[in-house]
Amino acid sequence: MVIKYKKIKNFTGKELQNLFLSVNWDSGNYPGKLKKAIKNSHRVYSAWDLDEDNGQKKLVGLINSLSDGVMTAYFHYLLVMPEYQNMGIGKELVSLMLAEYKDFARLIVIAYDSEVEFYKKCGFELGEDKSPMFVTYLKT
């Protein structure tokens, strides 16, 4: 297995759907919207499993950012297919994004409670006296 990282925004709806549904994210049910959302992101890094034997490639991870381009970047999506988790792919995707925005004053992620420890290992800290708030029709 060879994992390659790419800084691209062009994905098929099927690639995104397969990745998002692999981690049970409801967004995967909206591949057309996902494709547009990713294309409109400020930055996107993706992880690909390149099968050199048969020339196949598979999208196995992705991180994106929304940003004002100067001061603040919000990392919205970070996901890695379950069979590729615990291999350092998520950590590498976060590292690529942190390097991209190293001079920004504020980098933000809203983490599921089960993922807080992962993000702490990547250098994030819990905000004091802050709570994420949402208006959404998505389940996850």
Rank of each mutant, 00 (worst) to 15 (best):
F20M: 02
F20I: 01
L21T: 08
L21F: 04
L21D: 03
S22F: 04
S22G: 03
S22E: 08
N24C: 06
N24Y: 14
N24R: 14
N24L: 11
W25A: 00
W25M: 00
D26N: 13
G28I: 02
G28N: 04
G28M: 04
G28Q: 09
N29M: 09
Y30E: 10
P31D: 05
P31C: 06
P31H: 00
G32V: 06
G32N: 08
G32C: 12
G32T: 12
L34C: 03
L34Y: 00
K35W: 02
K35S: 11
K35N: 11
K35F: 05
K36C: 05
K36V: 13
K36I: 06
K36W: 11
A37Y: 07
A37Q: 09
I38S: 09
I38L: 04
K39T: 14
K39Y: 14
N40G: 12
N40R: 10
S41D: 03
H42C: 07
H42T: 11
H42Y: 10
H42A: 08
H42R: 06
R43N: 15
V44L: 06
V44G: 06
V44Q: 04
Y45V: 07
Y45G: 01
A47Q: 03
A47L: 01
A47N: 00
D49R: 08
L50W: 14
D51V: 05
D51Q: 09
D53M: 15
D53T: 14
N54T: 10
N54G: 09
N54S: 09
G55N: 11
G55K: 06
K57Y: 08
K57N: 15
K58G: 02
L59G: 00
L59M: 04
L59H: 01
L59F: 03
G61M: 04
G61W: 10
L62A: 03
I63M: 08
N64C: 11
N64V: 00
S65N: 06
S65T: 08
L66K: 13
L66Y: 11
L66D: 05
S67G: 08
S67Y: 03
S67P: 11
D68L: 10
G69K: 12
G69F: 10
V70Y: 13
V70F: 15
M71V: 13
T72G: 08
A73Q: 05
F75M: 13
H76K: 14
H76R: 15
V80M: 06
M81F: 05
P82W: 00
E83S: 13
E83G: 05
Y84H: 06
Y84L: 14
Q85S: 08
Q85R: 07
N86L: 11
N86E: 14
N86Q: 13
G88S: 07
I89H: 07
I89E: 05
K91R: 12
K91L: 10
K91T: 04
E92S: 05
L93F: 02
V94Y: 07
M97A: 12
M97D: 09
L98E: 09
L98A: 10
A99N: 13
A99V: 11
